[in-house]
Design a protein around this nucleic acid. Structure first.
Lengths: 159, 159
DNA sequence: CGCTTAAACATGAAATTTCATATATTGACC
DNA sequence: GGTCAATATATGAAATTTCATGTTTAAGCG
């Protein structure tokens, strides 16, 4: 879920009601607030957010098959197929059929794609470090653990 | 952000690399994993996720103006205008111009909209309670606070 | 084998989302 | 009051996303 670029700032009314304390809202709002700046950086480099996600996943696992990549990058499969095609057209990735199972299509970074991806990962690391530095010691240290726990609790099929 | 309905499950490889420990990924993945079930319930009742968000916000603040509602519901303004129009067509909300400032359009729940919204909020509360119950005491207690802190740190203009 | 079912991707039409911009109204200031 | 900038919402075309389904290949089994 990407940050709605033009979403206007919220009002200044009292913080009350159902929504501001609802877990799913807090998760979505935190994700969006945390991502907004960095995603703007990504787009400024001519990369869309789903493309960035795919690049990041391929840095971790080059040659992954489409379905797995979709799960890893949080993108629905038929959408990923189209994104991959665009990234292929831009020269960032190539596709090769899997020899052992010819239904599968494996996706590889091109040299240009790897250069771009490495740069973005470096940017992401810097941005993340700055973000964590802004948090008070206790929260900064524990939030990632709490999120990982939540994810594992909800989606045990995780890798 | 909505859960990619057809996103396939992740592989079972080793949990390593950049992505699985990256804060923005953890936030997005946690948001999606936590929302998936409930959003499926919402859609099963014929309500799309952005519509549900608007309904929930209106339960908190009926008669809010479009721009504020957009911020509160995490939806970009021009998109919200269209969503509101559809919700109006479905008889869930009505729009009335603000007397004091005629640029503004205020959005109100209809009786049918309120009935629907109240039901969904009740569902959401139940779902949230079940979710929190699945977490170990420590994490369950602190995750909402951590997220709220993160949001405030990043977006001080919050209400 | 031959058959049936399932998995992995691709595809196309419909719907939504985005982006830039238009319109209307208000506010500020001279 | 008139003028200029800013705010609030709407709109339209282009692009993306979704949903259902098609195609190809693999697996299971009698």
């Amino acid at each position: 879920m990407d940050a709605p670029a033009g979403a206007t700032t919220r009002g200044e009314g009292a913080k009350h009601g159902f929504v501001p304390d609802y877990l799913l809202y807090l998760l979505a709002a935190a994700s969006e607030a945390a991502s907004a700046q960095f995603h703007a950086q990504v787009r400024a480099k001519g990369v869309r957010v789903p493309e960035w996600r795919v690049l990041a996943c391929l840095v971790d696992r080059d040659g992954e098959m489409v379905t797995r990549l979709a799960g890893y990058a949080l993108v629905e499969q038929s959408r990923l197929t189209k994104i991959i095609a665009q990234m292929d057209a831009k020269g960032w990735v190539t596709r090769r059929g899997d020899a052992a199972d010819r239904r599968r299509v494996r996706v590889y970074l091109t040299p240009a794609g790897r250069t771009l991806a490495d740069r973005l990962v470096a940017d992401a690391r810097r941005h993340e470090a700055a973000l964590l530095a802004k948090l008070e010691g206790g929260d900064a240290a524990r939030i990632k653990q709490a999120l990982a726990t939540l994810i594992e609790e909800l989606d045990p099929a995780q890798e």
